[in-house]
Design a protein around this nucleic acid. Structure first.
Lengths: 167, 167
DNA sequence: ATAAACTTTCACATATTACTGAAACTTTAA
DNA sequence: TTAAAGTTTCAGTAATATGTGAAAGTTTAT
């Protein structure tokens, strides 16, 4: 396999993976591209490499910056902005975990809490509903706590956690 | 809030959550519906409750059965098939984790492995690429191992894992 | 073997989501 | 303060993913 081809496949695969996880394809691809680039890239270069429009590049770069996993970089003497991905895979994963908790787990917990306070109604159906939503609430909050514990380890969190689990 | 309304909101939220995690909305909703139903439901009942077509119901039920989180149930004297969700939240989460590893993590690892064997080419770019894909490979396989360790605990895995992490 | 009762499939329709490109906006240097 | 260089926004379009419904397929009881 040629280098160019390998790179192409990597970008493709990473994009597809993103889709499966609710991250849009282009955003995942831009991130992948920045991750494997030795130097930071300008928006022009990103557009060129991935064959995407300015608007698309701009939106998705902003998204990545919001996630805290891509930074702007200003080169001295240059007006243009350059973009650079967080280089540390552990820190990347940690940031994603924290953000997803904030954006998805917390709101879900809020709904689960809400939904249990319906006007009492002693049907079988209502009782089962109350029970299951309670169980889900408990599970999700325990999972969230676990994620927090894992990610609070400053670095190499996956490895460290495996170590702890080895006991 | 009325019970009916609470139920409605729960089904909606669970569906939306599914989308964010790459599970289609209807599939997530059917699962949610079955989870909170005291009795197993026929396809007719599911169609009625969620206002979906026969084809859609059939496809998504099959999907859920493939994931191993919904079962068919045959009632004596009845020809119709009934569907029932796995009632244990821990086991549900465990099955999902195992399936996602099989369906997504393993294939990703294979690609990452492949992609590193490009014809040698000693550019800066190629070296960086090799390094990053290696790092990703290591990370993903460590994460997968962790998931495996967590899920191999037969039950209450989230709680047990938190306990271990408490040290 | 047949037909009633039910389930699955699949070509087409719909809905959702992502992308484009041009106009509007912002920043910087002179 | 202007204009060059760049970035963002957004209405319209394209691509993708989901859903429909009728026809084909299955199963079961007789």
């Amino acid at each position: 396999m040629e280098f160019k081809e390998a790179k192409e496949q990597f970008l493709q695969t990473w994009g597809a993976l993103g889709s499966q996880w609710g991250i849009n394809k282009t955003m995942a691809q831009i991130h992948a591209l920045l991750m494997i680039s030795p130097d930071s890239l300008s928006m022009e270069e990103i557009m060129e490499e991935l064959q995407i429009s300015r608007g698309n590049a701009s939106m998705n770069l902003r998204g990545l910056i919001d996630w805290g996993i891509v930074y702007k970089e200003y080169k001295p003497g240059e007006r243009r902005e350059y973009f650079k991905a967080d280089q540390d895979v552990d820190s990347l994963a940690r940031k994603i975990a924290v953000e997803r908790s904030k954006r998805e787990i917390q709101p879900t917990l809020r709904v689960l809490e809400d939904v249990r306070n319906f006007d009492e109604n002693d049907s079988n159906e209502a009782r089962k509903f109350k029970q299951k939503t309670q169980e889900l609430y408990d599970f999700v909050s325990r999972a969230d706590t676990m994620l927090e514990k894992i990610t609070n380890q400053k670095e190499n969190w996956v490895t460290k956690t495996i170590m702890k689990l080895m006991t």
